[in-house]
Computed example of a mutant assay.
Amino acid sequence: MPLAAVMETDTSQGDIVANAARVAHVETFHRLADVEAVWRSMETADHLFTPFQRFDFLSAWQIHVGQREGVEPFVIVASDAQGRPLAMLPLGTRTENGVRTASFLGGKHATFNMPLLTREFAATTAKADVETLLELLRAQPRKADLLALARQPSHWQDIVNPLALLPGQPSVNGCPLLKLMPKAAPTERISNSFRRRLKSKERKLQPLPGFRYLVAQTDDEIRRILEAFFAIKPQRMAIQKLPDVFADPGVRDFIFSACLAKSAGHGHAIEIHALECDEEVIAIFAGVADGHRFSMMFNTYTTSANSKYSPGLILLRNIIDHYADRNHTSFDLGIGSDDYKLLFCKSDEPIFDSFLPLTTKGSIAALGLSSLTHAKRLVKQTPALAQMAQLLRGALHR
């Protein structure tokens, strides 16, 4: 598709480039407050987006984590000739070694990354549309050198991710997935034999005073469960000889803020599930949900004697049944093939990364990042190399 002459303008809100194509305008915003109204208008049923790209989730991350890490918002809004937003990419930039790289906001705390799109545009996007978007970005007066777009699902709600039409490569890890069939019997999502095993373990916990499964709803419940999480998680990570990523600056404040944030029609930005008794919180799983899918973000379980009864697995059974009863169609426990995930999630969802240069400098950086990702994937998929990497991480943590 030939590109028309590009017209560049500067506004107080962002940088705009116009082009006579289906994607006719591209505007970048460098303050979240300036794009909040458009962003929230795209969080509706006639748009396609993952719950990791909600404004409440990513604004909390940017305030508490992104700013500390030197991330500047670089939110891209692509519109048609009438100025109607078709797609929004919630990105942020940082400069390292002289290269200005734009990546999805949320860092390692966002399991999946994807634009927010009108459903009509997402369902009918052609390769020429996304190529036009890139050309418009390259023409911007204040552009990034490179788009480093990691952990993208190839589909969402059975609609192809338009960015999958651009050059990409498999991510380091895939995502184990459990598909939930509407009105299916509970034993079709978790086998009867596995349910019996978990029920047997649960009977050991049921005599505990006040034993219960809780979906945290009130601010007091959320704060109480999170305080327990931040007390238990460091102990768990120390036992595993792994660094505690939740101890990084700003992460605690981000988690509290996102868990407490609640928007009309979406519920809490992060939903918390727990097994507890009067004496302690026994297990915790938290994640995001959008009426179609639940995606786990973080979890932990007690270091007390109650841990021997597999409380995490018991809690997962409750969570899966909870969302299946609410007509969700899929469930995942995050990217990575940990053994406990494969007990529940039998399918595997492909995840891809894209390294898209916008300048000559970005082309060199894209080649380096692509090669590094390929090498990491090779290590992950080669048992001997993966074991060596795990031993090395443990040694460095001592």
Score class of each variant (00 low, 15 high):
W156P: 00
A164E: 02
A184T: 13
A139P: 00
H155A: 09
P186I: 01
G168M: 05
K199L: 11
Q140S: 15
P141C: 09
M181H: 15
R195P: 07
L177A: 12
C175P: 01
K179L: 11
N173D: 15
R196K: 15
L146E: 06
A150D: 12
P153F: 03
K183G: 12
A139C: 07
P141F: 09
S154F: 02
S193M: 08
A185L: 08
P186T: 06
E188S: 12
L149A: 09
I159V: 14
S154H: 07
Q152E: 02
G168A: 08
M181Q: 15
H155F: 13
K204P: 01
D158F: 05
K199I: 03
P141Y: 11
K199N: 14
M181K: 15
A148C: 08
E188N: 11
Q140K: 14
C175M: 07
A150R: 14
K143A: 07
L146A: 06
D158Q: 12
K143S: 11
R142L: 09
I190F: 02
E202S: 08
P153Q: 03
Q169W: 03
K199D: 13
L205R: 08
L166S: 08
G174V: 00
L165V: 01
E188Q: 13
Q152A: 04
A144M: 05
Q169G: 09
R142A: 13
L163M: 05
L178W: 01
G168K: 04
L163I: 00
R197Q: 15
K179F: 11
S193H: 10
A150W: 00
S193G: 10
G168S: 14
S200K: 13
S191K: 12
E202D: 09
R197Y: 07
R196H: 12
P186Q: 05
A164T: 14
S171Q: 00
S154R: 14
L180M: 02
V172K: 03
N192W: 12
R203Q: 14
Q140N: 14
A150C: 14
L180R: 06
P167A: 05
V172E: 08
R138E: 11
V172M: 08
R138A: 07
L166C: 05
P186E: 09
R195S: 13
P153D: 02
S193K: 10
A148S: 12
P186M: 03
V160I: 10
R142M: 04
P170R: 02
R196M: 06
Q169V: 03
D145I: 00
H155K: 10
G168T: 03
L165P: 00
L163D: 01
P162F: 01
F194H: 12
G174Q: 09
Q152K: 03
R197A: 14
M181F: 15
P153E: 03
W156L: 06
I159H: 14
D158N: 10
